[in-house]
């Protein structure tokens, strides 16, 4: 045995891994993963005078069938779907149109338009809610005066105060605020399409509209799909706008109630009803499931079929 060959040193414990990953992971798991899982578990319990006991799916059954709960729950859910549908129908098409216009070749001031149109997106939903509340207020009368000036005065109404129009109005406000996001993302995708491809289509005889329909639109579909799922998650998680403009009661007569405000009321209680953390957890769990299903559907049916294109 030659002594010059020494046994290989044992690989030292990878302390650096713990140092790099540990702190971030610890905070993330403690304040995000654990609470989420804990909430899911909590939704299977009930509490009475400080004692908690396992009740299985009873909270969920209560939510969807009990007369004190179910109408409020189904109302919030249905409102939430309307809220989402409204965004899909308005926010994405408007964003698409603005993005296409912004990407017109040799457009002057494109950067300025882009910056200004994106501005409302930067502000807090709460602030935007208040701003629109003032603008639409019949007391101040700005909107009313404006509508009279363009000859539509008779259509003015206290939209935010009426049961039939409050949710639509709030959807409008939200669309107005967030239209910048689809605009920006679609715009970026349009800019990434090489000029040569557009030129090739022109030489192939396509006019501007055909080029848009056959070349550009298919290439921005993945972006539109992504914007849609972002909108879905944001909408089913919305709270601030309703809370700022209509309060936790989401009036008039709960016509603007979304799952977010319903969750808040369930957890903290309102008027005579006592807050319940287990029922709150049950609502949160349902929201979690809805979002999860939405994201999964997106991943499995949309994302898989629409491949990204490298140029």
């Amino acid at each position: 045995m030659s002594s010059s060959i020494q046994p290989e040193e044992k690989k030292p414990f990878p302390w650096h891994l713990i140092v790099f990953l540990g702190p971030g992971l610890l905070i993330y798991v403690t304040f995000s993963v654990y609470p989420l899982l804990d909430t899911l578990i909590l939704s299977l319990y009930q509490e009475q005078s400080g004692e908690s006991y396992f009740v299985g799916l009873e909270n969920f059954v209560t939510l969807v069938t009990d007369e004190n709960w179910s109408s409020a729950f189904w109302n919030a859910l249905s409102n939430n779907f309307q809220f989402f549908a409204f965004h899909m129908l308005l926010q994405n098409p408007i964003g698409l149109i603005l993005a296409v216009l912004l990407s017109s070749p040799k457009l002057r001031l494109a950067g300025t338009y882009r910056t200004l149109i994106f501005m409302p997106t930067m502000l807090s939903v709460v602030i935007i809610g208040f701003v629109w509340q003032l603008i639409l207020s019949p007391i101040w009368g700005i909107s009313e005066e404006f509508l009279y000036n363009i000859g539509l005065g008779q259509f003015f109404d206290a939209w935010l105060g009426k049961e039939g129009s409050a949710l639509v109005t709030l959807s409008f406000i939200s669309v107005w605020q967030f239209v910048g996001i689809p605009m920006m993302l679609i715009y970026a995708t349009l800019l990434n399409i090489p000029d040569d491809i557009i030129d090739a289509s022109t030489v192939d005889g396509a006019n501007a509209f055909q080029t848009f329909l056959y070349i550009k639109l298919p290439l921005i579909l993945p972006t539109i799909a992504m914007v849609s799922i972002l909108t879905f998650v944001a909408n089913f998680n919305a709270f601030e706008l309703i809370y700022a403009v209509k309060g936790a009661l989401a009036g008039p007569n709960f016509s603007t109630d979304l799952l977010g405000t319903f969750f808040y009321r369930t957890f903290f209680g309102f008027q005579l009803q006592q807050g319940s953390s287990t029922m709150g957890a049950a609502v949160a769990t349902l929201m979690f499931l809805i979002i999860l299903v939405g994201v999964m559907l997106f991943l499995f049916f949309v994302q898989r079929r629409i491949q990204r294109f490298q140029f």
Partner: peptide, 14 residues
């Protein structure tokens, strides 16, 4: 994708 808000009940307890 999953909003942290959904864990609010437990975050508050914590």
């Amino acid at each position: 994708m999953i909003p942290i808000r959904l864990g609010t009940v437990s975050i508050l307890r914590l």
